[in-house]
Each structure stands twice: as C-alpha cells, then as structure tokens.
C-alpha cells in the first residue's frame, strides 16, 4: 500500500468519543472501598487480623482461657514439666510451671494484655506526636519546619533501645508500665514525623488544595479536611508495623533489666527470668518468645498488607 489513500470501514463506533456518561452497570467505588476490597482478598491480612482478633479477646477476657491466677506462685510446684497436675494446688499446668512455681500458660495468657497495651499506647502516643509535628512542619513550613526538623534529627540520632535505656535509668522508681510506654513514645515518634512531613508537603501542592484555598476555605480547615485525610494513609500502615517494633522493644528492655520488673505479668519479664534456666527448662523461654513473635508478626503482616492496599504505585499496575 504505497501512498494509497486507505479508509477503514465506518464500522467503528464513534459514540464513545463523546461519551460523558458512565456505564450504569459499574458500581460506584470509592478509594476507601477499593482499599478494603484488596485487603480482604489478601490472605496475609485475613490471617493476621484473625490472630490479632484472638489476641484482643485473650487480652480483654483472659479469664475465658485459664482459671489460674498467674501471680499465684507455689514454690513447691516449681519447674513442673508440660501437662502435669499440681499436687498441691490440684490445678492442671498445661505448659508446666516456672522456677517460682507459677503456671506458665496463665502467665502467657495474662501477658498478652501487657504486650498489646504497651504496643497500643506507644503506637498511639508516638504516632500522634509524629503526625502533629510532621503535619505542622510540612504544612506551615518556614521557621517552624526548620525547628521541628532539627528536633526530629536530634531524636532520630538516638537509637530507640539506647535512648530508652538512658531515660529508664532516670525513671527507676516510676510505675513500671507507664515508664516504658513514655520512654518508647519519646524515642519512637521520629519516623512517623518524617513520613507525615513529606506526605503533607506532597499533598499540599495538589491542585485540589489550591482550589479550596481559592474558594476561601480557612487554612486550618484545609489542613484538617483535605490535607491530613489524604496524607495520612501511609502513616496508618507504618503505625501497625511500628506496634510490632514497640512490643519487641518492650521485651528487650525487660531483658536488659531496665524495663518492666517482676511486679508485672509480661512476656518480656518472663523471657528475661527464663535466661537462668535456659538449659534445664528451655520451654520457659520458648513459650513466651513464641507468643511474642506471633504477635509481632501479626502486626507486621497487617501493616504490610495495608501498605500494599493503599500504595497508589502498586494499585496502578
């Protein structure tokens, strides 16, 4: 076909060129419901949320799972093996007993509450600090941004565990639970602050933000109505992942002897105490460790699947 003038059949439907309607059969989907859709089709999300739901129930109603008081320790029944009946207390020790004669299973059940609460409180506090500071720095910019960014840099330069060790030295006599929450929050907020700052900075240059500014919306209203809702989604995923970091960090602090002490029923404390009997009774270290790892893993999976669901880059593909 040299330079012949070729014309296709007129069969092409040109109506679509002018189409301004949407096929009525298509269901309306918001970004939110799309996210939910991709979440419930991710097996990792299903598994992790089921485990976390179970953990939540254990943490709220530990009595449903064991009748034994984890703090009632009978020295005559110390270090019993798996699945024995205590002669003295007449109670069945599913996972045996600790060196002090406490029921191991009960301690794991009750320890869930401590771990989840530490993770939850630290996540809420540190993410809130991070979001507020990050949003202020990113949205208002200028001198505020410089100050907040420098402060973030300073805190970021102190590794989480090390900073926590230093601060917990100071708080030796404070309430064991809250001092850990406070400490981890103080050194944990920096990453969410940095993320929020860059996310807000990106969102605020979007044209829809300029549009509402030109409509006369107040600067603060824009921040809360348009900027934060659009900027916050990556933070949610990171917050879930950070829960697992905090739960593990809490145990590490107990292990180092600066975190919670034996007055609290917690996995970390039990792991720390089990060091001495590592060779003779490794189960005492293993069971709370497994509980800890599963919890951390579930939050990790949850955060990762949320991240996959909201990551616009992946959605486009």
């Amino acid at each position: 076909m040299e330079n012949k003038h070729f014309v296709a059949d007129f069969a092409n439907n040109l109506d679509e060129v002018d189409a301004v309607t949407i096929h009525s059969s298509a269901k309306s989907v918001s970004a939110f419901s799309k996210t939910i859709y991709s979440l419930v089709h991710n097996p990792l999300f299903i598994v992790s949320s089921l485990i976390l739901f179970l953990l939540l129930i254990i943490a709220v109603f530990p009595g449903l799972f064991t009748q034994i008081d984890p703090t009632r320790c009978v020295i005559r029944e110390a270090s019993l093996p798996i699945g024995t009946n205590g002669e003295y207390t007449k109670s069945f020790h599913l996972l045996g007993t600790t060196g002090l004669g406490c029921d191991e299973f009960a301690r794991i059940i009750y320890g869930a509450r401590t771990s989840l609460l530490v993770g939850f409180f630290v996540m809420v506090i540190s993410t809130s600090i991070g979001c507020v500071l990050g949003a202020i720095a990113g949205y208002f910019g200028g001198i505020l941004d410089s100050i907040i960014s420098r402060i973030t840099d300073v805190f970021f330069a102190i590794p989480l565990i090390l900073g926590a060790v230093a601060l917990l030295q100071l708080l030796k006599d404070a309430d064991p639970f809250w001092k850990v929450v406070l400490t981890l929050s103080i050194f944990g907020w920096t990453s969410s602050a940095r993320l929020m700052r860059s996310s807000v900075m990106e969102t605020k240059t979007q044209e829809y933000v300029t549009s509402v500014r030109a409509l006369g919306m107040e600067k603060l209203t824009i921040l809360f109505k348009h900027v934060i809702p659009n900027a916050i989604s990556p933070i949610i995923a990171i917050a879930m992942i950070s829960m697992s970091v905090y739960i593990v960090a809490d145990s590490a602090l107990s292990f180092l002897g600066v975190g919670m002490n034996s007055s609290v029923v917690s996995w970390g404390v039990d792991i720390a105490n089990a060091q001495t009997t590592l060779q003779s009774n490794p189960g005492l270290l293993l069971y709370p460790s497994i509980a800890l790892a599963i919890t951390a893993l579930s939050f990790m999976f949850l955060g990762d699947s949320i991240n996959d669901a909201i990551d616009p880059k992946k959605r486009r593909r």
Binding site: N3, K4, H5, F6, V7
Partner: peptide, 12 residues
C-alpha cells in the same frame, strides 16, 4: 482504538 481508520499521504 487499536485500529487504523485512515492512512495516506499527509496532504491527501
């Protein structure tokens, strides 16, 4: 839409 509807010399 993935098809050639017309072709030929530019002027034409």
């Amino acid at each position: 839409k993935g098809q050639i509807v017309e072709s030929g010399s530019s002027v034409e």
